[in-house]
């Protein structure tokens, strides 16, 4: 697939801090690319440089093979991490106003349908719930029928149900052929939505690839979780690779052979009543690559 948007060696400093330090990547047309990392990793700075909101100190950005210009705004849809609309503006009025800024606005009825805004079209935008508000902001990002959609932490602060509703919308947009650049610190969100991800920390990309490929490259085991109380003796004495999570009062055991691990647990008179088995996640990958918990 053709690369639609290309970032090449982007850098940005805020005083002594290198917020973005030589970052390069390309967005293939029609895919969803995720920038993952904890708060302060440089995700928002990168996305704002690509959007033209923040000037880069170094590096170049290309759109369809040419350096980005002012016209790129007509092709870009943007949903900021935190944003506000003018007061006393209804949902419909907000869509109409933003639509009038562009030469080829998307039909408003289509946006209302895509983002499920029909129930609260005439409501003051300040009186929307968190999920409704994010759907409106997503619709505004789509108001110019963009080729590239930037979504900066679109589900932060939403409850699980609202988050899943927004995921469904993002999938619908991707299915329409839009190219999406998403930032998030929710690994589950990236796994669910992204074709390709780049994991960032301290202003750099530390690895990139498809979520499944990355997990397969770095892990070949699953995780068995047991309540700490189900292991009478010291867990460290077990002949298994054990990690104790004292705060959560759980014990995690890495296993390449589940049957063999379970036999060892039974031989040590450990109850399996509370046993849970999960695959390795992007969260584990981040921990493995940086040595730190995700500071979400």
């Amino acid at each position: 697939m053709a690369v639609l948007l290309q970032a090449s060696n982007l850098t940005k400093r805020f005083g002594d801090v290198a917020a973005v330090n030589g970052v390069s990547f390309g967005l293939e047309a029609g895919t969803c690319f995720g920038l993952l990392g904890p708060n302060g990793a440089g995700k928002t700075t990168i996305i704002e440089m690509l959007e033209g909101i923040t000037d880069a100190d170094g590096g170049k950005i290309f759109y369809r093979g040419k350096p980005v210009g002012v016209d790129f705004r007509n092709d870009a849809g943007i949903m900021f991490q935190s944003t506000a609309l003018q007061d006393y503006m209804t949902v419909r009025e907000a869509l109409e106003m933003f639509g009038s800024f562009y030469p080829r606005p998307a039909p408003i009825d289509e946006l209302i349908d895509t983002c499920s805004l029909g129930e609260f079209l005439d409501r003051d935008s300040r009186k929307l719930s968190g999920g409704q508000r994010q759907r409106l902001l997503l619709a505004i990002a789509l108001v110019n029928d963009p080729q590239v959609v930037f979504l900066d932490e679109p589900t932060t602060g939403l409850d699980p149900q609202a988050r899943r509703n927004l995921w469904a919308l993002v999938k619908r947009i991707r299915a329409q052929g839009k190219t999406i650049l998403l930032t998030t610190h929710y690994m589950e969100e990236a796994y669910e939505l992204c074709d390709e991800i780049a994991i960032m920390d301290h202003g750099k990309i530390i690895t990139r690839g498809s979520p499944k490929t990355l997990l397969a490259e770095h892990f070949d085991e699953v995780v068995l979780q047991l309540p700490r109380a189900d292991i009478p003796a010291d867990p460290a004495e077990l002949p298994l690779p054990v990690t104790l999570h004292e705060e959560e009062e759980t014990v995690e055991i890495l296993s390449r052979d589940i049957n063999a691990t379970i036999r060892i647990l039974l031989d040590n008179d450990i109850s399996l009543a509370g046993l849970q088995i999960r695959p390795r996640t992007l969260e584990d990958l981040f921990l493995a690559l940086t040595g730190e918990e995700l500071r979400a």
Binding site: I53, A76, F80, T83, A84, Y102, P103, I140
Partner: peptide
């Protein structure tokens, strides 16, 4: 007030 609340930032992202 617009600048502080982010209204201007959102408008900046448009061709306005």
């Amino acid at each position: 007030r617009y600048r502080k609340s982010g209204v201007l930032k959102r408008l900046q992202a448009t061709p306005l």
